Simulated assay, not measured.
Amino acid sequence: MQLPRDDRDHPRAEAFRAFIRQTDFPCVGAKAALSKAQLRVLVARSVTSAWDDMRIYPALLAFAARYRARPDLFQSFAVVFEEAGDLSEEQFERHLWDRLQSLADKDAWLGHRWDERVAADPGNPHFSLSFAGEAFFVVGLHPGASRPGRRFSSPALVFNPHSQFEHLRETGRYETLRSSILRRDVALAGSVNPMLARHGELSEARQYSGRAVDDGWRCPFQPRHANAGGSDVR
């Protein structure tokens, strides 16, 4: 695996930061991560290819290690892909899960255990992804997204440590932050995002790609970690 490189000056990284800086961008959590210089960006070739997975994975591990050593609020790791492509929402969703499956398979092969604070079954309401034993919520963005807040000029995957949301809940700040994001998203899109749900109500896997899915949707992800079968958080 290649050591993570510093992509902060890459044009795609700057374009992503500019996207978040837009006045009407709804996610105030991402804005906070950017203002605190806690948004790490890696630029990869294409979301449709495994070409850079061996660069993305060690960078994700490095981010998880830094976060665990200093778990300050509002930290995110973004993978921005250079090739915009002409992907429908269904195609982007498929490639998003291909990339996440590839990264998770590498994590399992290296012997990392699933974060036992969350469930490994993507159908479980307490599901989150896990890398190096740290749970993550993922936000996908791409040019063909129906929600304008997810409509970036090239595909991107943003990894957010799950424990940040739990800390916000414990300190009584989560609902205020969530309400602010919802209000801003409605102002931008003209409607409430039908896929939003609190952790523990519905599986967050339904939210990752940004596509509106029906009750019959099934996540294609298969956890392969040694302890994945027993990770059933209640």
Rank of each mutant, 00 (worst) to 15 (best):
F127W: 14
S130C: 09
H95K: 13
R151A: 15
S128A: 15
G133C: 09
R184Q: 07
N193V: 11
F152D: 12
A197T: 02
L110E: 15
F152I: 08
G111I: 01
F92I: 05
F152K: 07
T171P: 04
A145G: 10
R169V: 06
R173Y: 01
R99A: 14
E116C: 00
R113G: 12
P122L: 05
E134W: 02
L157R: 10
H162E: 06
P122C: 04
R183L: 15
H167N: 06
F137E: 05
F165W: 04
D107Y: 04
T176M: 09
S130F: 00
R117M: 11
L182T: 13
L157K: 03
L202Y: 05
G144D: 12
S180D: 11
L188D: 14
F137L: 06
A120P: 01
L96Q: 12
L177T: 04
R184Y: 07
G149P: 15
H95M: 06
A108S: 05
R198H: 14
R169W: 07
L100S: 06
V192M: 14
G149R: 10
R198W: 02
M195P: 06
E170Q: 14
S130A: 05
D98C: 10
E201F: 07
V118P: 01
L177A: 06
F131H: 12
G144N: 12
L110N: 12
D98T: 03
P155E: 13
S102G: 13
E93G: 09
L168W: 01
H95A: 07
D115N: 07
G172E: 08
G133H: 13
Y174W: 13
S154M: 05
D98R: 15
A187T: 03
L188H: 09
H199N: 07
P161Y: 00
H199I: 07
A145I: 10
E170M: 03
R183T: 12
L202P: 03
S203M: 00
N124D: 15
A189Q: 08
A135D: 02
E93M: 12
L141S: 09
H126A: 14
R99I: 15
W109K: 13
H142V: 02
L103P: 02
S102I: 01
G190P: 13
L168H: 00
R183C: 11
A145H: 08
W97P: 12
H162K: 01
R198K: 08
S130N: 08
E93D: 13
A104F: 05
G172M: 12
S163N: 11
F92S: 07
A104I: 00
R169T: 00
R117K: 10
E175G: 00
A120E: 02
G190L: 14
H112G: 06
E201T: 04
S154C: 13
V192T: 13
G123M: 12
S154V: 15
D121I: 09
S163K: 11
P125S: 13
K106H: 09
F131W: 11
H162S: 01
H199L: 05
Q101E: 02
P148M: 10
G133N: 05
I181E: 03
E134G: 10
A108K: 01
D105E: 12
A119R: 04
H199A: 12
S179A: 14
L182Y: 04
A187Q: 13
E170P: 02
L168D: 00
R150H: 11
S203R: 08
A108D: 02
H142I: 00
H167P: 00
S153H: 14
L96Y: 14
R178F: 09
